[in-house]
Design a protein around this nucleic acid. Sequence first.
DNA 1: CGGTATCGTAAGTCATTGCTTACTGTAAGT
DNA 2: ACTTACAGTAAGCAATGACTTACGATACCG
Lengths: 106, 106
Amino acid sequence: MTYDTVLSALADPTRRQIFGLLRGGASSVNALAAQLPVSRPAVSQHLKILKEAGLVSDQRDGARRLYRLDRAGLAAMRAWLEPFWEEVTAAFNEEWERQLHDRMNT
Amino acid sequence: MTYDTVLSALADPTRRQIFGLLRGGASSVNALAAQLPVSRPAVSQHLKILKEAGLVSDQRDGARRLYRLDRAGLAAMRAWLEPFWEEVTAAFNEEWERQLHDRMNT
DNA sequence: CGGTATCGTAAGTCATTGCTTACTGTAAGT
DNA sequence: ACTTACAGTAAGCAATGACTTACGATACCG
């Protein structure tokens, strides 16, 4: 459940779609497959990957199995992303300051 | 330069490595390839994809070409990520409150 | 200008992966 | 118990993608 697995999980469009469908509450595999252009087994395989990435958690509900969003994956991704964002923002501000300084000297 | 292209760009480990190497300043293609286990053309191809995703920008420097981090891609990714994070955090807090309430009634 | 350096592109190969159908397992209903 | 519903797994296939070598293009240096 590192950022590696999270990023490679979210690389697939169908998985992102599944992930998006799970906003607004938990859902069964059949219910998800009904809203997608792929078969039910395909959805199962995607859910397995999303689960391994910590983006989704599952829970038995009788014969069904309910999937819902999970925090862990997103948290790992954000933790990885943050340093890059700060680095890039710092460089951006530096450049901005430099140009402002140049303009004041002309 | 949507979150689609950003996520699929960051899905590859080598590209993430290149992206990481560009922290700490701009670099040429050769300099990057020297620190990577792949050939120089491979790095060029990766840089092309990173550029299309808005994660990297390039600039001529004589015969060389310098690549540096770019804000746009990360910004797009963050914009896509945020609603999910808020959704998932809200659900988490709700659940926490519910369990706290249950515990107080026993 | 000829030679060297740096980089991008093309073509081809091999591995990965996302999908399907078929099968197995488990839980609920009659 | 038998049947139906729901979901995970296996096997096979077609497409995508990451890498290599070979080539072409542009900029600097003597």
